[in-house]
Design a protein around this nucleic acid. Structure first.
Ligand SMILES: [Zn+2]
Length: 305
DNA sequence: TCCATTTGACCAGG
DNA sequence: CCTGGTCAAATGGA
């Protein structure tokens, strides 16, 4: 009866070509920002910098890929779920000598920190009440913890092929406090397993999802190359149907305001959507991330002199 | 019987 | 000491 929309439903959820292009543009702009703030990174300038750059490039390419695919196959639903992520894939050597040993080696001081990115997945109240749909990988749950300040526990998953492929990929799933239909999925590390994607129908996440309906839309929230957070606004927050249809979405991406402290860098990014008829679509996204930086990283010095 | 999830204990970092 | 993340024994379903 009363359509209270306990959770926003995404009826007209069609990834638009325009949107994809817009996203690519945003990503390119971010890359530009990144490059600008590093005019002369002759020094090491931290590896995260590299990774971030790589990541953005990858994202841009991926975005273009999707756009091209859309243009070529208008009727093709194309990849329904742009899975976990295709971040930093450095073509760096390290072919054989990749002993699975995160400790030791060149551990002079810099410990190897795996990238981390978070996506927000929204499920329909009925389709997947408990847990987001599978993302194509085989995950095995290895823990669950109650998080301070959160009403719902956080589930810890690890690639099922960990013991066979030594795949370091893990992910955490946490349900939003306000919107039980929204899950924040945080991925850590990249899949080393050659096992790309399994059957989407296969229950991959956990008992949470006995039956996976077509995966909902994912929204990339943030990305940390090493420890750095990078907020990447995806074309669709939660339900920008209007924006999707709008060739010129007013997506004001207020440049991040950054404050650098001795060792702690705080980035506050605010993405504001300026719509004339703001029918309570969704409050603007405000994401604030604090992330510590390695003291060895002179990254902050070059950050925003 | 096999195997994935559960769940409290354990551990490390802040 | 507190908190988040992981381990591993127990559990339960196929
Ligand atoms: Zn894997």
């Amino acid at each position: 009866m009363e359509n209270k929309k306990p959770c926003q439903r995404d009826d007209n959820y069609s990834p638009t070509l325009t949107n994809e292009l817009q996203q690519g543009k945003d990503l390119a702009r971010q890359l530009q920002m990144l490059l600008l703030q590093d005019p002369h990174s002759s020094t090491s300038s931290s590896r995260s910098f590299h990774d971030t750059r790589e990541f953005l490039v990858q994202q841009i390419i991926a975005s273009f890929d999707r756009a091209v695919s859309m243009a070529n196959h208008p009727s093709d639903p194309l990849a329904p779920s742009p899975p976990p992520l295709p971040p930093v894939k450095s073509e760096s050597p390290l072919s054989g000598s990749e002993d699975s040993d995160p400790v030791g080696e060149d551990s002079t001081r810099r410990k190897r920190v795996q990238p981390r990115w978070t996506t927000k997945v929204q499920v329909s109240p009925e389709t997947g009440f408990e847990g987001p749909p599978g993302d194509g990988y085989n995950w095995r749950k290895y823990g669950q913890k109650d998080i301070l300040g959160a009403n719902f526990p956080r589930a810890y998953y690890r690639c099922a092929l960990k013991h066979q492929t030594n795949c370091p990929a893990t992910k955490q799933v946490q349900r939003c406090d306000e919107d039980p239909c929204i899950f924040e999925v945080t991925y850590r590390s990249l899949h080393a397993c050659n096992h790309p994607v399994i059957n989407p129908n296969q229950p991959s996440s956990s008992s949470y999802n006995p039956n996976q309906p077509p995966p909902q839309r994912e929204t990339l929230i943030s990305f940390d190359p090493n420890n750095a957070s990078f907020i990447i606004p995806k074309n669709s927050d939660l339900h920008n149907q209007h924006l999707l249809a709008n060739p010129n979405p007013e997506f004001h991406f207020h440049a991040s305001s950054m404050t650098a402290t001795s060792a702690v860098l705080s980035t506050t990014t605010t993405a504001v959507r300026a719509t004339s008829s703001a029918s309570a679509t969704s409050s603007p996204i405000n994401i604030t991330h604090d992330f510590p930086f390695d003291p060895f990283d002179d990254f902050d010095s070059t950050f925003f002199h």
